[in-house]
């Protein structure tokens, strides 16, 4: 297992060019091309803010401007959920490769996570634009934490993806299961609402790993008053390391079955 993990470094060139290929191929033949990476979140943001600020008349105290509040956590969530959905099926759709070419299979889920991460990063300028427009200032001294949050999310997503993609090879319905669970998970996470409004449910929120990522993003970029959630974030980071190793172990155990089962 450790050996294979080390081998992965040798394949970073492959991961890099596969991510580039993914991004290029995705917009090949479309008129707006890479511009879609900006347009997609922009449209998403417009719809959500229209629904929640005008139709549902959300006037919750402290969540104004609502569009910016919602977007700070929605953008990372989109990265997380589309990574998970795509990564779960990545071994199956890349089956041809696994059967015919010798290379570590974990490259495939990692590539989907990383190319979704690029979309996430390309969405950030939209968020910044809105922050400037609404005069929302981030927590400047705490801003370096942003990198930590992204890293923790990356690790956490990678861990889940490894596990799910390996499982999906043997049980195809994992894919459908995941996409449905993600919808549920989205509403169970304080993204379009604030956890502060539901103090009774704090225990439930605390059990949800993505809560801590969402709150971290919000505290740094949206709320005033420092980054009090860092302990939770680091705990999640530690948990993700363990989870990642466990998932990698499972993946490694199942590795030999992939070329026969996909």
């Amino acid at each position: 297992m450790w050996h294979n993990l080390g081998q992965l470094l040798r394949y970073r060139g492959l991961i890099q060019s596969l991510v580039a290929r993914d991004l290029k191929a995705r917009y090949r033949g479309s008129m707006l091309g890479f511009f879609w990476s900006f347009v997609n979140p922009l449209l998403l943001l417009t719809i959500y803010s229209f629904v929640f600020t005008y139709l549902l008349q959300n006037r919750a105290e402290g969540l104004q401007p609502y569009a910016v509040f919602m977007f700070t956590a929605l953008l990372p969530w989109t990265w997380f959920s589309s990574s998970l959905t795509e990564a779960t099926g990545s071994l199956i759709s890349g089956g041809n490769l696994i059967k015919k070419v010798l290379f570590p299979a974990e490259v495939l889920p990692f590539v989907t996570i990383l190319s979704n991460m690029v979309h996430f990063l390309l969405g950030l300028p939209i968020l910044i634009g809105f922050m400037v427009y609404y005069h929302v200032t981030p927590d400047w001294p705490q801003l370096p934490w942003f990198l930590v949050i992204v890293s923790v999310q990356l690790l956490f997503t990678a861990a889940l993806s490894l596990f799910l993609s390996a499982l999906a090879v043997h049980f195809r319905d994992v894919r459908d299961l995941v996409s449905n669970l993600l919808t549920f998970w989205f509403f169970a996470t304080p993204i379009i609402y604030s956890y502060k409004d539901f103090p009774n449910y704090k225990n439930y929120f605390d059990w949800n790993p993505f809560t801590h990522l969402a709150i971290s993003y919000q505290e740094i970029l949206f709320f005033d008053g420092g980054f009090g959630h860092w302990k939770w974030l680091l705990a999640l980071g530690g948990g993700s390391v363990v989870l990642f190793l466990a998932a990698y172990w499972v993946f490694d155990r199942l590795r030999d079955s992939f070329s026969e089962a996909v």
């Binding site: 290929r21 290029k24 191929a25 090949r28 041809n96 490769l97 059967k99 015919k100 070419v101 010798l102």
Partner: peptide, 15 residues
């Protein structure tokens, strides 16, 4: 090792 098992496995049609 280089294996000529299935040629062009992993070509992406769009690029």
């Amino acid at each position: 090792i280089s294996a000529l098992i299935e040629l062009g496995a992993g070509f992406h049609p769009e690029i």
